[in-house]
Write a protein that binds this DNA or RNA. Structure first.
Length: 555
RNA sequence: GUCCCAGUAGCUCAGCUGGAUAGAGCAACGGACUUCUAAUCCGUAGGUCGGGGGUUCGAAUCCCUCCUGGGACGCCA
C-alpha cells in the first residue's frame, strides 16, 4: 500500500515533469505514452527505474538520454522520498529513495494485520468466478482439483483488491451424461440384485456407482425391480445425484473451497430461460433450421462453424443451456464473469463469446481461464489414469496422500496454461525440497521466536532506523511488496504470483534468521527485530491464506 | 487439415503488457550448527531462451515461418 502510493506519486511527478518540459519547449510530443516505473533487478540501478525517456524517444523525435535530461530539469527531488536520480544505460531514469521509506512499513503492517495486502481497486466490480462445475456422475479428479485451487485462489485475490466476488458451481444435472449415468446406475442396481444385465457401452464404470447402489439397496432393497425402467432410472439418478453432490461438497470443503452458489442446469430448462434465450437469438437473426435441428450462426460472431442448439429430437444441447446460464449471470448484475475451464473446453470459448455478442453483451466481460492438464508422477513414473475405465486418482485420495496444503500450493504454483507435472513424492516430502514446507517452516520459526520473546512491542515504540542490515532491509522491502503483488495477480488472473512471492519472502526470512539474531540482540535492536519478524509473520500468513494453505505455528 | 497451449540450466519451472549482465528450486560439487527450530544458510559449476527470418535504440518477451510434444475440432458435456 505504502509502496504503491509512493510509486504512483512518483509516476505522476514524472508525467508532470514531462509535460512541463513540453510547455517550456524542451520536448515535443502529442501524447505521453504509458511507461513503467519498477524496482530494477540490479541494486546499483536504484530503488525505482523509469523508462519514460525511452518510450518518448519516437514521439519526441529525440535521443532517450536527452529526453531524460529535459524531464529531470522539472522533476522535484526531495519530494516523495526521492533523494537522488541518474540517467543510466540507454536512457533509464534511476531513482534512489531515502532509505527511511521502509520505516513506514512496519506500522502499516501491524495496523492492518489480517487486512495487510488488501487494497481497493479503482473500479470495484461485481465478479462471478465459476469453477470446477464437474459432472456429478463421478468423483472429483485432478483436473477438477486444479480448477478448484485456481478458482478459489483467484476469487480470494479478486476479493482482496476490493471486488465483490461470488464463487459458483454449475451443476450439470441434466443431459446425455445424466442419461448414461441413469443407465449405469440401473445396470449396477440390477447386477447387485443378481440380474444378468450387461453394462452400457458409454456408462460410468467407477466403483463409486456400485457403492452408491449398494447403499440404496441396503435401505430399499429390490423394490425398484418391478418399476418401469424410465421411472426407475429417474429414481436412481435422483438418489445417486444427491449423494454425489453431497460428496463433492464435502470434498471441496475439506479442500478449503466453499461456494456461494450451486447453480442447477436443470433449473434453466424448468424456468424457461433456455426457451427465452433461443427466442432472443431468433429475434436477433442468429438461428436457422437444418436437418430438423436448430443451429446457431456462430460463424457470424467469430467462431469457425455453426453449432446445434436444439437437436432434431427437440432437446436443447448443453451449449444452449450454457448460453442461458451466461445470460443469467449478467442479468444478476455481474460486471465481469470468470470461468475456469479445462483445456479440453477451449474450443467452446469462441462460441460462448460469440453467443454473448449475439445477445448484445460485450464478450470481453467474460474471461475464460484455460487450464492445461495435470499429470501425476510417483517414483518418477507417470501415474496411469483413464477416466473411461474409471481408474483415476480422486481429489479425496490426493488430500489423503499429500495433504491439502501441498496440493493447493502445487496446483497454483504453475501458471494455468502450463501443463502440470505433479510430483506426489515431492509433495509428500517433509523437507526443504518441498516448497510448501519451506514456506510454512519460515512461519513456524517466527512463531517460535515470538513465543520465547514474551512481550511484543508495538511498531510505534521501536526505532526503525536500527534495522539497517542488508538482510533486514531486504525483508522490509519484500514485505512492502505484498499489496502490489496481489494487485498484479488480480489484474493478470495469475495466482501463481502469490506462491512465488511467499517463497521469496520465506527465503529472505531464512537468510535474515541466520544473519540476524533476534532474542539475544541488544535491547533496542531486539525490539525492532521482534516487530520486523512479526510483520513478516503477518505477511506470510496473509499470503498463505489467499492460497488456502495453513500457516502452522509449530512444525 | 484448422485452432489452442507448451518448448528457457541435466530435471521441474519462473520471467513474456519489449528494457540494463536471462532467474529459482532440485540434482552435482565445496563450505557453515557452543547462539532464537540445520525442515536452515553461504559458495561453485551449469544457457545457441526449439530453429530461421522480421519489427526497433533495444527481443526470452511482439510478428511471420518451420520443427517437436500435448490438447480440441460431436445433434457429447
Amino acid at each position: 500500500m505504502l509502496l504503491e502510493r509512493l510509486k504512483s506519486k512518483i509516476y505522476q511527478n514524472l508525467q508532470e515533469a514531462a509535460i512541463r518540459a513540453r510547455e517550456e519547449g524542451k520536448l515535443t510530443f502529442e501524447e505521453l505514452p504509458p511507461f513503467t516505473l519498477e524496482k530494477p533487478r540490479e541494486k546499483e540501478h536504484g530503488d525505482l527505474a523509469a523508462n519514460i525517456a525511452m518510450v518518448l524517444a519516437r514521439p519526441a523525435k529525440n535521443a532517450p538520454r536527452n529526453i531524460a535530461q529535459a524531464i529531470l530539469e522539472y522533476f522535484p527531488t526531495g519530494k516523495n522520498r526521492v533523494v537522488r536520480y541518474e540517467i543510466a544505460g540507454p536512457g533509464f531514469i534511476n531513482l534512489f529513495l531515502d532509505q527511511s521509506w521502509v520505516d513506514a512499513v512496519l506500522p502499516e503492517v501491524e495496523e492492518m494485520d489480517r487486512r495487510y495486502g488488501c487494497t481497493l481497486a479503482e473500479n470495484r466490480q461485481k465478479i462471478q468466478v465459476e469453477f470446477v462445475s464437474a459432472n456429478p456422475t463421478g468423483l472429483l479428479h485432478m483436473g477438477n482439483a486444479r480448477g478448484a485451487a485456481l478458482g478459489d485462489t483467484l476469487a480470494n485475490v479478486l476479493a482482496a483488491v476490493g471486488h465483490e466476488v461470488t464463487k459458483e458451481f454449475y451443476i450439470n444435472d441434466t443431459g446425455k451424461q445424466i442419461e448414461n449415468f441413469g443407465l449405469s446406475l440401473e445396470a449396477r442396481y440390477l447386477q447387485l440384485l443378481g440380474e444378468d444385465v450387461s453394462f452400457p457401452e458409454n456408462g460410468y464404470p467407477g466403483e463409486d456407482l456400485i457403492d452408491s447402489m449398494r447403499r440404496l439397496i441396503s435401505t430399499v432393497g429390490d423394490k425398484y425391480l418391478q418399476v418401469a425402467p424410465q421411472l426407475r432410472r429417474e429414481i436412481l439418478v435422483k438418489y445417486a445425484l444427491k449423494e454425489k453432490l453431497e460428496q463433492m461438497k464435502e470434498d471441496l470443503t475439506d479442500f478449503g473451497v466453499n461456494y456461494d452458489v450451486w447453480f442447477s442446469e436443470q433449473s434453466l430448462h424448468d424456468s424457461g430461460d433456455i426457451q427465452a434465450v433461443l427466442w432472443e437469438l431468433q429475434q436477433n437473426g442468429y438461428l436457422y433450421e437444418k436437418d430438423e435441428a436448430i443451429w446457431f450462426r456462430s460463424s457470424l460472431v467469430g467462431d469457425e462453424k455453426d453449432e446445434v442448439l436444439v437437436r432434431s429430437n427437440s432437446v436443447p444441447t448443453y451449449f444452449a443451456a450454457d448460453i442461458a446460464y451466461h445470460k443469467n449471470k449478467f442479468q444478476r448484475g455481474f460486471d465481469r464473469v470468470i470461468n475456469i475451464w479445462g483445456a479440453d473446453h477451449h474450443g467452446h470459448v469462441a462460441r460462448m463469446k460469440g453467443a454473448l455478442e449475439a445477445l448484445g453483451y460485450d464478450p470481453d466481460r467474460l474471461h475464460v481461464v484455460i487450464m492445461q492438464l495435470v499429470r501425476l508422477f510417483r517414483g518418477g513414473e507417470p501415474v496411469r489414469m483413464s477416466k473411461r475405465s474409471g481408474e483415476y486418482v480422486t481429489l479425496r485420495e490426493l488430500m489423503e496422500e499429500v495433504g491439502t496444503d501441498a496440493a493447493r500450493y502445487f496446483f497454483i504454483n504453475r501458471s494455468a496454461d502450463s501443463h502440470l507435472d505433479f510430483d506426489l513424492d515431492l509433495a509428500r516430502e517433509q523437507s526443504s525440497d518441498n516448497p510448501v514446507y519451506y514456506v510454512q517452516y519460515a512461519h513456524a520459526r517466527i512463531c517460535s521466536i515470538l513465543r520465547q520473546a514474551g512481550e511484543l512491542p508495538s511498531a510505534q515504540e521501536i526505532d526503525c532506523s536500527l534495522l539497517r542490515e542488508p538482510a533486514e532491509l531486504a525483508l522490509l522491502e519484500k514485505i512492502a511488496e505484498l499489496p502490489g503483488e496481489i494487485i498484479y495477480a488480480a489484474e493478470s488472473l495469475e495466482p501463481q504470483r502469490l506462491s512465488h512471492y511467499a517463497y521469496e519472502l520465506a527465503n529472505l526470512f531464512h537468510g535474515f534468521y541466520t544473519n540476524c539474531h533476534v532474542l539475544n540482540a541488544e535491547s533496542g535492536l531486539r525490539q525492532g527485530r521482534l516487530v520486523l519478524v512479526n510483520a513478516c509473520r503477518i505477511t506470510l500468513r496473509n499470503t498463505l491464506k489467499l492460497i488456502g494453505v495453513s500457516a502452522p505455528e509449530r512444525m
